[in-house]
């Protein structure tokens, strides 16, 4: 039989509960409740055009969704956007981190400069890009013209719209990868790199065989954050293309916005949001497991 709790222990316990209560209640009401509501809605035909009727429709929203061409098209665009953007960000972030690592002691302000894109208000940056992308007045086409390259339609043409969005995402989020990878490089002991040099390896071999594998836990973490975030990117797409031209840049999140906010079919949009959430959770888990994270300590 467990020891009887003393009065002091009980008082302490209730004190802890009281202190935790506000944050817990806030958390639950702001995340769990909306989540449960949207799970419920996803099984109904609830629409803001007829808010007084809610009918249980079972899995109909899900089956409609998974058999719609719009959904699969958006899924394809989302996948391309996520993988290409995060891929470029990773290569650039790791590359710049590797180059900066040895220099930063001489020029610490370089690090600040590289982090600026992350610090700028996203909406301000995005509107600036909208001006820069403008096919006739934009600075990008002006610069291309100076270099003798024919102007691009940027976000105005279906062929280049997605690429333009990727460009903005890369500009904004490469620093994130850079930051985490540089943190990793600073945290790892330098001796294995030195050992590699002594062992006769050149800088490339040292980087790919010794540095990069040891950065795996940091890189995986950065990638996980970035993949999840890129997968549900909304702001830059909404401001720059609104999903267009046509449906060229309509990602899943834009599609959910369209169904929910424009067409007011909350049930259907909720189902789409739940699908995205489940996909993110499953993919994240698989990603973490496959990489066997956090067991590289020596």
């Amino acid at each position: 039989m467990p020891l009887r709790q003393t009065t002091i222990q009980r008082a302490e316990r209730s004190f802890i509960l009281w202190m935790l209560a506000p944050a817990t209640i806030l958390m639950l009401s702001l995340t769990l409740v909306p989540f449960l509501v949207s799970v419920y809605l996803s099984f109904t035909d609830y629409s803001l055009t007829a808010p007084e009727t809610i009918n249980w429709v079972g899995l109909k929203n899900y089956s409609d969704l998974l058999s719609s061409a719009d959904f699969w098209d958006a899924a394809r665009i989302t996948t391309i956007f996520t993988i290409v953007a995060v891929g470029i960000e990773t290569v650039l972030g790791v590359g710049i981190a590797a180059l900066l690592h040895h220099e930063v002691r001489q020029a610490p302000w370089l690090r600040v400069i590289y982090l600026l894109p992350m610090a700028i208000t996203p909406i301000a940056a995005t509107f600036t890009f909208r001006l820069m992308f403008n096919p006739t007045q934009g600075v990008l086409n002006h610069l291309l013209g100076l270099a003798g390259v024919s102007p691009s339609a940027w976000t105005a043409a279906p062929e280049t719209a997605l690429l333009s969005l990727i460009l903005v995402d890369v500009w904004q989020w490469t620093p994130f990868i850079l930051l985490i990878v540089m943190g990793g490089m600073a945290a790892l002991p330098p001796e294995p790199e030195e050992a590699s040099q002594m062992d006769g390896a050149g800088p490339f071999r040292t980087f790919f065989l010794v540095t990069l594998p040891r950065l795996k836990p940091y890189l995986a973490l950065a990638l996980l954050f970035r993949l999840i975030d890129a997968f549900k990117t909304f702001d830059i797409i909404f401001v720059l293309t609104g999903g267009g031209p046509g449906v060229a840049t309509r990602t899943l999140n834009l599609l959910a916005y369209k169904y929910g906010i424009e067409f007011l079919s909350m049930g259907y949009a909720s189902a789409l949001a739940i699908v995205m959430l489940v996909f993110t959770l499953v993919a994240g888990q698989v990603f973490l497991r496959r990489l066997g994270l956090f067991d590289l300590k020596d």
Binding site: E191, P192, A195, G202, R214
Partner: peptide, 25 residues
């Protein structure tokens, strides 16, 4: 060839690959 105080082995490589590394280089 250098031997370091904290060994400086390549933590992600098997012992054999660690020892073979200078030859690989």
């Amino acid at each position: 060839a250098m031997v370091f105080q904290n060994y400086a082995l390549y933590p992600h490589m098997k012992v054999l690959d660690n020892v073979a590394y200078p030859l690989r280089a």
